[in-house]
Simulated scan of single mutants.
Amino acid sequence: MSASTDLTRRAFTGGAMALALGGKSFAQGFAGLGESAEGFAAVTPGKPFTFPADHGPHPEFRIEWWYVTANLSDAGGAAYGAQWTLFRQAMKPGGPSEGWTNQQLWMGHAAVTSAGTHRFSETFARGGLGEAGVEAAPFRAWIDAWELRGLDAFDPQRIAPLELKASAADFSTTLRLDAERALVLQGDHGYSRKSDRGQASYYYSQPFYKASGRIVIDDKPVDVTGAAWMDREWSSQPLAADQTGWDWFSLHLPSDEKLMLYRLRQKDGRENLFGNWITPDGRSAEIAANGNSITPTATTEIDGRKLPTSWRVALPARGLAVETAPLNPKAWMGTSFPYWEGPIRFSGSHAGIGYLEMTGY
C-alpha cells in the first residue's frame, strides 16, 4: 500500500473516531465514558476472571485498554519514563463484523520522558483489517508495528515475560518485562467502582514487572532498567455523567509494596477516592475513601491549562504521608484526547517512584 493511501486511510480512521467520541476532554470524550451504556454489556460484581482469556478483547463492552508504564534509569542513575497503551472502543453494540463495517476502533499511545524531554506519538486503526488487535493465546497486542507480545515460557497468570516495542520519528522503546508474582485484582476482587451510582469496570494489574531494554530519544540510545506496571481494564460506562476526569497514581514503595490510588472529580467539586494497597506477596486490599486524601500542592501551566503536577498523598491508617514531584512537569500528552502522563518520585514517610495520569483538565 502506498504512503499516500495509508495516510488517507489513517485520516479517515482518526476522523471517524473523533466523530464517534465527540470533541470533549479525554475523560468524558474518549468512548463516551460517562454516556448511557444501553446495548453494551454491564459490569457486575463477582465476575470469575479467567486467564489467558481475559487478556484478550471483550468486544461486548464499549471500552478497554492494555496500559504499561515504566520507571527506568540508565547506568549513571538518570531517570526516564516510558508508556505504551492500546485502547479499543466499540462505536456501537453488537458482535464485531469484518472489514470496514467493523465497529471496533483502536488507538495507540506511546511516550518516553526524561527530566528535560517528553516525546509522544499516537496512531489509529480500524478493527477487522488486521492492523490492530489483541490475541489472548499466544498473547499479542499490536497496532501497526507497535507490539506487546508474550515470549517463550509465557505464564498467563503473570502475563509475563513480555516484549514491548514502539517507535516514532523522534523516539523508540524496546523493553523486556519479567514478573515472578501473579496478577493482582483491583477494587473488590476485580470489580472496580467508579461512583456510588453503579459505574464500574473490571480491573486487574501486573505491578511487579522488572523492565530492561533500550530507549532512543532524538537518535540517542540509552540502555535502561527499572520497574513497570500494567493495567488491564474494561467497561461500558466507567464514569457518571457528572464526573469530569481523574487523577491516578501507581506507586512503587521501597518495601516492594504497591499502591494504586485515584480520585474521580465531579462538576460540583466533590470527588470520589478509590484504590488498592498491594503487599509484596500480591495480596490486594481496597483503600477506604474516608480519612485518606490526595491533595494538589503545585501546578504547571501547559497549553493554557493549569495542571496539578505535585501532590500530597495521605493514608493515615497505613502510615503513609508523601509528597510527589514529577520527573518532567511538562509531560503533556497532546493527543486527540489530551491528558498528562509521566513518571514521578515521592518522599516523606516512604520514598520511591511511580506514575501519575491526569485527565479532564
Rank of each mutant, 00 (worst) to 15 (best):
M1P: 08
M1I: 08
S4D: 13
S4A: 15
D6L: 08
A11W: 09
T13F: 14
G14L: 13
G15E: 14
A18Y: 03
L19Y: 12
A20T: 02
A20V: 01
G23R: 09
S25K: 06
A27I: 01
Q28F: 00
Q28S: 06
F30E: 01
G32R: 11
G32S: 08
A37E: 12
F40M: 02
A41Y: 01
A42C: 11
P45V: 11
F49K: 04
F51K: 06
A53C: 12
A53T: 15
A53E: 15
F61H: 03
I63R: 00
I63S: 00
T69K: 05
A70R: 03
L72I: 01
A75Q: 09
A78V: 06
Y80E: 00
G81N: 04
L86D: 01
M91F: 14
M91L: 15
K92A: 15
G94I: 11
G95K: 14
G99Q: 04
G99M: 05
N102W: 01
N102P: 01
Q103D: 15
M107N: 07
A111E: 03
S114C: 03
T117F: 04
T123R: 12
G130L: 07
G130D: 13
V134A: 10
A136F: 06
P138S: 09
F139W: 10
W142G: 02
D144N: 10
E147N: 15
L148N: 00
R149Q: 08
D152Y: 01
A153F: 09
F154G: 02
A160T: 04
K165R: 14
A166W: 11
S167P: 04
A168P: 02
D170L: 12
D170R: 12
T173V: 15
T174M: 10
R176C: 09
A179W: 02
E180M: 02
A182F: 00
D188I: 12
H189L: 11
S192H: 09
A200T: 11
S201P: 04
Y202S: 10
Y209K: 06
R214T: 13
K220M: 14
K220P: 05
D223G: 11
A228V: 11
D231S: 05
R232M: 10
P238D: 03
L239H: 02
A240G: 14
A241D: 07
T244G: 08
T244K: 12
W246F: 14
F249N: 03
L251W: 00
E257D: 14
E257T: 10
K258L: 07
L259E: 03
L259M: 05
L261C: 06
L264V: 15
R265Y: 14
K267F: 09
R270W: 11
R270S: 15
N272P: 01
L273Q: 07
N276P: 00
D281V: 13
D281G: 07
G282R: 08
R283I: 10
R283F: 12
R283W: 13
S284K: 07
E286A: 13
E286H: 02
E286K: 11
S293G: 08
T297R: 13
A298C: 02
G304P: 02
K306H: 08
P308E: 06
S310H: 09
V313K: 03
L315T: 05
L327K: 01
P329L: 08
P329S: 12
A331V: 08
F337I: 07
W340A: 00
G342P: 02
P343W: 00
I353E: 10
G354F: 05
Y355C: 04
